[in-house]
């Protein structure tokens, strides 16, 4: 883990230290994997729902990484955005920079998909699943490895 970048988020007050909980982290990852399987299953019939599941799988994998390392995002407005910043800080250089860099784009489309006129296509779901799967795999490897 890139401790310097994460320390900067802690200094900023975005991330706070808590007791590390590997068991809860593994449960989060199990849920994230279920979300990915469900997203793939409903992509044709419900792309908006599938996209939300794929996004949440990625977010929960990042939350799992925080839990395993004794960290969490300070609750409040913008917690999802800050989770994305944590991912970029903590998992930089592990071959998933592209996926992590797209977290905020996924977050933005997920938020807008609550409203009329936002577009979620099947291709978007597959892209989200691909990014989320990459993050879930790396975090699983770190926690179980």
């Amino acid at each position: 883990m890139k401790s310097r970048e994460v320390d900067a988020l802690i200094s900023e007050g975005v991330i706070v230290r808590v007791r590390a909980d590997g068991k809860a982290a593994r449960l989060d990852l199990t849920v994230a994997r279920s979300h990915l399987a469900s997203a793939a299953a409903v992509v044709d019939s419900d792309p908006v729902g599938a996209f939300a599941l794929a996004y949440d799988a990625m977010r929960k994998a990042l939350v799992a990484h925080m839990r395993a390392n004794g960290l969490r995002v300070r609750s409040g407005v913008g917690a999802h955005y800050q989770t994305g910043r944590y991912g970029l800080a903590a998992l930089d250089g592990q071959g998933i920079d592209g996926a992590l860099g797209e977290f905020d784009t996924l977050r933005s489309l997920r938020n807008r998909s609550e409203y009329r006129g936002a577009l979620v296509k099947e291709a978007d779901v597959y892209e989200a699943i691909s990014h989320a799967q990459a993050v879930v795999d790396i975090v699983t490897g770190e926690i179980d490895g």
Partner: peptide
């Protein structure tokens, strides 16, 4: 019928 919602999101950004 735009090809991608994610691409539109990137455009917006």
């Amino acid at each position: 019928n735009p090809a991608s919602g994610l691409e539109l999101t990137r455009v917006s950004s």
